[in-house]
């Protein structure tokens, strides 16, 4: 059956996570078509971007003030209307905060048990998803006529951003029965010149061992040198050293960069769940017994306050010589 992917966007650009979700949806749909739902306000640039994705055959656009922001109640109404009109067998979204917010809401409208954080598509009705913070993988089979799922972006390649030429079809705005009960007030996005944490090729992450928020400046220097993003463990967030937007782990972001440098992070199960699929993991910790070393490709035991500046200096020397 055909599949629908809910686009994540800010009305001007399409989030890369959506292209990963398209790949997952295509795996579920098999030879059947994949459509993308762009619900937003003045969002034609997003619709164009979605139509250009390789493998997308149709873009449904709901342009209405109620979906200017990704309000789950309104977005779910739009998705349910799209399913009713087009008979999709699957509705997928990336397992971002926004995707996790809306997919189960659709579940209540369609009476379907959603499937969270799919990491592998086994067949059109069978999927693999992590449970217990990734300490076990469950293979689950859904008998719902419409399969609703969030997919973990790091487990599916992004569909190419161009090569497609999908039809763009405007949909009538559906009823939004909760429109006057939930209103967007404000958003406060952390401004950063660094790459987006979820898709950065390099992540430099700090934990409790950093001792204070000020000490994260040391990691920022290293991250900037490597063109990477900053991350943190839940312990560092809990102690108020850094903003929760940096949290990597079961209860935060899941990342899988080419290089992950864990500094002063012991490696609690909950943190490992968020980064153990990284290609190369470097761990710097003063405790030789820290569990982070069991997943690290390169472990260096010692005082991070000496190691990090030395590492930064030596990498800087190589970069300037190159």
């Amino acid at each position: 059956a055909s599949a629908l992917v809910i686009a994540e966007h800010d009305n001007s650009s399409l989030a890369k996570a959506t292209r990963h979700a398209v790949s997952a949806a295509a795996a579920v749909a098999g030879s059947d078509p994949v459509a993308v739902l762009v619900a937003g306000s003045n969002c034609s640039a997003v619709a164009d971007a979605a139509a250009a994705i390789d493998g997308v055959s149709q873009v449904l656009v709901v342009d209405a003030p109620e979906v200017e922001h990704p309000i789950a109640e309104n977005l779910a109404a739009a998705a349910a209307a799209a399913v009713e009109a087009h008979g999709f067998g699957t509705v997928a979204a990336a397992a971002t905060v926004s995707g996790k917010n809306v997919i189960p809401r659709i579940g209540a409208l369609l009476n379907a048990q959603p499937i969270s954080e799919v990491v592998e598509v086994v067949s059109e009705d069978t999927f693999v998803r992590p449970i217990y913070a990734g300490n076990a993988l469950a293979t689950v089979k859904s008998s719902d006529p419409v399969k609703l799922m969030t997919v973990r972006a790091t487990n599916f390649d992004a569909a190419p951003a161009d090569g497609g030429s999908a039809d763009i079809v405007a949909m009538d705005a559906p009823d939004f029965p909760l429109a006057d009960k939930v209103k967007f007030v404000s958003a406060e996005l952390s401004q950063s010149d660094r790459p987006d944490l979820a898709s950065a090729p390099v992540v430099v992450s700090g934990g409790r061992g950093l001792k204070s928020g000020e000490n994260f400046a040391m990691l920022e220097k290293l991250a900037d040198l490597l063109g990477g993003a900053m991350g943190a463990s839940r312990a560092a967030v809990d102690e108020g050293m850094v903003n929760n937007a940096l949290q990597i782990g079961q209860t935060g972001l899941i990342v899988a960069p080419d290089l992950y440098i864990a500094v002063g992070i012991s490696g609690a199960i909950q943190h490992l769940a968020g980064m153990k699929d990284s290609k190369v993991i470097v761990a710097i910790n003063k405790d030789a017994e820290a569990p982070i070393f069991s997943v690290a490709d390169y472990g260096l035991e010692g005082d991070l306050f000496q190691i990090v500046p030395e590492l930064t200096e030596k990498i800087a020397a190589i970069k300037s010589a190159a």
């Binding site: 499937i115 990734g134 076990a136 293979t139 089979k141 859904s142 260096l300 030596k314």
Partner: peptide, 25 residues
């Protein structure tokens, strides 16, 4: 409507090495 067919251990990451110095890293 969602049935668990089986539960497996996640693949184990191959153990890496400990390096002795920043230079080695």
């Amino acid at each position: 409507s969602l049935q668990t067919l089986e539960v497996n251990e996640p693949p184990v990451r191959e153990a890496g090495i400990m390096v002795g110095s920043v230079d080695e890293l």
